[in-house]
Design a protein around this nucleic acid. Structure first.
Lengths: 238, 238
DNA sequence: GACAACTTCTCTACAATGTAGACTTTACAT
DNA sequence: ATGTAAAGTCTACATTGTAGAGAAGTTGTC
């Protein structure tokens, strides 16, 4: 072993030096496990058995740490083989993203919120890679580059929106879910909220994947139509 | 005047008693003006010329205060005359909501994030009213109640997503916008991000309203198709 | 080895925050 | 006046992010 953990393991077991990756992934674990609020410098330091201050070598401040966490999560989104039909690919990416969000529900607020403070041009590469990927995909599919951008926005907008929606209805304990729901609906004035109250049962069983897929179908239908429409008129100039 | 502000205006001008509305609207003003982080109990107290502790009579804690602010914003969303065609209405609501979000960009994180901590059934009525309204609208338009729910989700999902997207690209100073963008794009490795870099100009001029409308068109097209498809099969049983 | 430069981590300290608990002031009903 | 409830204040404390100075450990050069 060329790299020794050598001598200094005598008292507090001298630990291997930190790294940005280690710091960020422990931070992520903390958030996943105990929630966003649990991610404090002190707690993270404790988790890593280091003085909280040592963290500042790997993230300029707490905000940067949060950005780092979102980046880590974003990087978990695998980039995929390009073979398939573009519609199939968009579907797949959407579902992958949904699963990713479900695996880190506590991070979602960061995912949707942090980019608000960072102009697009300055975001970490990991965050921009999906964008580039989808642009490529759409342009290959026949969309004009500018249109591809619009389509991307519609698509990602819808995707983010769906995830938000789903996680809002998502409750950890599904038994509790129904209980709370019934309780809550009961509270609503019957005259003002007739439809909502009537939908109690329908609200109780929510199938996120199906819901997403349904939305995607609508979206893709519309997109395909648009593509077909724009494909014919502009003949390439000789 | 039966209610006197009478005697006690002699030294620090005895102030009229607070009220939840006053507290919340000042809180909103603070957030609008100075950003989310500026909304601290102490600062809000100072703004109202009261001891920070007095606020706890109108909001159980800071989190509740935040919820209150989102509620206030939500209540600004006017409910509209019902005459119009459902598609027109959905379009109108979407644009209204967009404008609302643009008027309170600093509140958006709350708008999308706070509901995550409150199960649907327990949200403030103001937040649920749009939901009920749209359900009614869709059911009137011919959707089965359960379908109306799905449609609502797609619609609101898309809407939220669009707003998030738009505000992410929104920068206060439009001059700076282009500068930052150019700067940022330049930084991207040309091999890895060819399309994104090429889209520089297209990225620079963003028309949110148009973008939203385009998305809505796609969505509504898909929805209308779905409505037509589901309208014929299930004949009412005699 | 001796020494220096550098990286990594720790200690101490401070200002700001949310909020519990006890108290004071004000308003009003009897 | 006297009691009761509401509204507002004071004091105090634990917890947070982070600045600044330095300690400990690592590595390179002679």
């Amino acid at each position: 072993m060329t790299s020794p953990d050598k001598s200094n393991n005598q008292k507090g077991t001298r630990k291997a030096p930190l790294s940005r990756e280690l710091v960020l992934s422990t931070a992520l674990a903390l958030v996943d496990g105990k929630g966003l609020d649990a991610l404090t410098m002190r707690r993270l330091g404790q988790e890593l058995q280091r003085d909280p201050m040592s963290l500042y070598r790997y993230a300029a401040n707490r905000a940067a740490l949060l950005d780092g966490v979102t980046e880590v999560v974003m990087n978990e989104l695998a980039i995929l083989p390009e073979d398939l039909d573009w519609q199939v690919q968009l579907r797949k990416i959407a579902h992958d993203f949904r699963l990713l969000a479900l695996q880190h529900p506590n991070v979602l607020p960061l995912l949707v919120t942090r980019p608000l403070s960072t102009p697009l041009g300055l975001r970490p590469l990991g965050t921009l890679r999906p964008l580039e990927h989808i642009l490529a995909l759409l342009i290959d599919a026949g969309f004009a580059p500018a249109d591809a951008l619009h389509v991307y926005r519609v698509y990602y907008g819808f995707l983010y929106g769906h995830i938000l929606n789903e996680l809002q209805e998502y409750i950890v304990d599904p038994d509790e879910n129904e209980a709370i729901l019934r309780l809550g609906l009961h509270r609503l004035p019957a005259k003002e909220f007739p439809h909502l109250r009537a939908l109690g049962p329908a609200l109780a069983d929510y199938d996120g994947a199906a819901e997403l897929d349904q939305g995607l179908t609508i979206l893709l239908t519309g997109l395909a139509a648009q593509l077909a429409a724009s494909d014919s008129p502009p003949v390439p100039q000789p």
